[in-house]
Simulated assay, not measured.
Amino acid sequence: MPIRHRLLAATVAVIWGANFLAIHASLEVFPPLLCAALRFALLAIPTIVLVPRPQVPTRWLLGYGAGFGVLQFAFLYLAMDSGMPTGLASLVLQSSAPFTVVLGAALLGEHLTLRAGSGVLVAAAGMAVVGSQRMDGAAGILPFVLTLLAGLGWAFGNLSSRLAAAPRPLHLTMWMTVVPPVPLLALSLATEGPARIGEALTASLSSEALLAWGGLAYTTIVATVVGSGIWTWLMSRHPAGSVAPFSLLVPVTGIGLAWLVLAEVPQPLELLGGALVIGGVLLASSRSRRRVPVEPEPVPVPVAGTR
């Protein structure tokens, strides 16, 4: 990859890491499920009008939207609203990578190599270390479990996206946003209730809610359209193994920004667990390079009458 493309990949990781701060700001005004519904509704409307529908089977489009959109963000927003630290959420969500490896082997019959299996075990050990620091009753463990479920939802979305095999991946990414708004809004009405939704929408009209709207705008425009657009462009031009490792900078950025902006200081064991998670994800997603034997050059055979 040229240096400018590496810088673009690192920029996307920073954008996605900062997205967790934007979510935190949005949740200061909007209840979690309503916030997730608004996030996708703001993208779904212009997508239907402006973006051609991807030429993929409907079931995989729905599966991508349900896994990546509904499950991931419903659980993630609920986790952060119930006390999951912003920086730690960006780390635990990386569980999607080992979940994807395991589900690919279990559901799609993909071959699980020794390297990938070892990476999954290392990442799982890291998650266990992080989880052990959240064992201060249900109030501590519940946000952690919800974030793990968000990673599992992302993994199901990954499988559907892979099976869709979209000729234009960015169109699939944009049309995925059409799926979540209605189920998320229905869940919001059922669990958060019309009264809480009405109070949040009323509060959103005040000047104090500008930061929350800014967070929503960042999440929809910068993180999704700009970040995903650049990432898709890079993935279409370089091997996945060259681009994907840059996503490991997301939790580094998320934890660092949360430390600086929100004064969320991670515990030493959480940092150790995070290092194990990142190392496991890197190991699971890397491929061993097989040495190709070099055939000896043929020795020219003298032809009669020549030297």
Rank of each mutant, 00 (worst) to 15 (best):
I3Q: 15
L7K: 05
L8G: 11
A18V: 09
N19P: 05
L21K: 03
A22Y: 01
L27Y: 06
V29P: 01
V29D: 01
F30N: 02
A36T: 11
L38E: 08
F40Y: 13
T47P: 07
L50E: 05
P57W: 11
R59L: 15
A74V: 06
A79K: 00
A79R: 00
M80A: 07
M80P: 10
T86V: 14
G87H: 07
A89C: 01
S90V: 00
Q94F: 03
A97W: 08
A97H: 07
P98M: 03
V101E: 10
V101T: 09
V102L: 15
L103H: 04
A105P: 00
E110R: 11
T113M: 10
L114R: 15
G119I: 04
A124K: 03
A125L: 13
M127D: 04
G131P: 04
G140R: 07
I141L: 14
L146A: 05
T147Y: 02
G151V: 01
G151I: 02
G153Q: 03
L159E: 00
L163Q: 15
A164L: 06
L172K: 03
T173P: 09
M174W: 11
V179A: 02
L185E: 11
L187V: 10
L189A: 09
A190T: 10
G193F: 03
P194N: 07
A195E: 14
I197F: 07
I197D: 11
T202W: 13
S204N: 08
S204F: 06
L205T: 15
L210W: 13
L211Y: 06
L216R: 05
Y218K: 03
T219N: 13
G229Q: 08
I230L: 12
M235E: 11
P239I: 01
G241D: 14
A244E: 15
P245K: 05
V252P: 02
T253D: 01
L262V: 09
V265K: 13
I278S: 00
I278H: 03
G279D: 03
G279V: 05
V281K: 01
L283W: 08
S285T: 15
S286N: 10
R291Q: 15
P293D: 06
P293V: 08
E295C: 07
P296Y: 09
V299C: 07
P300M: 08
G305T: 08
